[in-house]
């Protein structure tokens, strides 16, 4: 049977610890896609005690059709900004999904289909503020997902950040895009699972 309209969707989860600015990153992404690119988008996030400390997550679902279920079902892209989030959410990835980790903070990768970029390191050493690691990551995800116009992503970012921090945030975003540009997705293993596991999902 032919696929129904509205079926195709792209799902991203931004995860890490509370205070890493993952919700802000997700909101900027959603704004760029929804308001500037004019596509359908749903952005959700974890609330309450679980959102503080340990694991924090924010999700964005993108589609060219109205979105029914607003949360992620099977991730196309997972950003993990710490080990706990990486371990907890890895299994929500589609088998051809993309795992993006902050290699400054994540040491053990659950798969070889992984894109490891030291977001926190770049933010600290090159931009000068650890705080903008989320924006470095946002830039990388903007490029790797292929779901958003990168100019619009920058516009959405500049509209959201506090006055006086625009330049720093823009630099962070552009650095992330640049770093992700070095990745050749075709060189990655085709699945996040190894072949044995794939046979017995």
């Amino acid at each position: 049977m032919k696929q129904q309209d509205g079926w195709e969707r792209y799902e991203i989860r931004f995860s890490g610890s509370g205070g890493q600015g993952l919700i802000t990153a997700a909101v900027v992404f959603a704004e760029a896609v929804g308001v500037y690119d004019g596509r359908y988008v749903c952005q959700t996030q974890s609330y309450g005690p679980e959102a503080r400390g340990g694991k924090s997550k924010a999700e964005v679902v993108v589609s060219d059709h109205p979105i029914d279920y607003p949360k992620a079902l099977e991730l196309d892209l997972l950003l993990a900004m710490n080990q706990a989030a990486c371990d907890a959410y890895f299994y929500d990835l589609k088998k051809n999904g993309i795992l993006v980790v902050d290699s400054t903070l994540v040491e053990q990768f659950p798969t070889s289909r992984v894109i490891a970029i030291p977001f926190t390191g770049i933010a600290r050493d090159e931009i000068g503020r650890v705080l903008v690691a989320n924006m470095v990551a946002l830039g990388a995800i903007g490029l790797l997902s292929g779901q958003v116009n990168l100019d619009n992503l920058e516009k959405a970012l500049l509209a959201r950040v506090p006055k006086g921090t625009e330049e720093m945030n823009r630099d962070a975003l552009r650095r992330g895009i640049e770093e992700a540009g070095k990745i050749d997705l075709d060189q990655l293993p085709r699945s996040v699972m190894n072949e044995d596991e794939e046979e017995y999902p």
Binding site: A30, E31, V35, Y40, T44, Q45, Y47
Partner: peptide
């Protein structure tokens, strides 16, 4: 409900 209240949509 909590889902509708906190979901952001364009």
């Amino acid at each position: 409900d909590e889902v509708v209240a906190h979901t952001r949509e364009a």
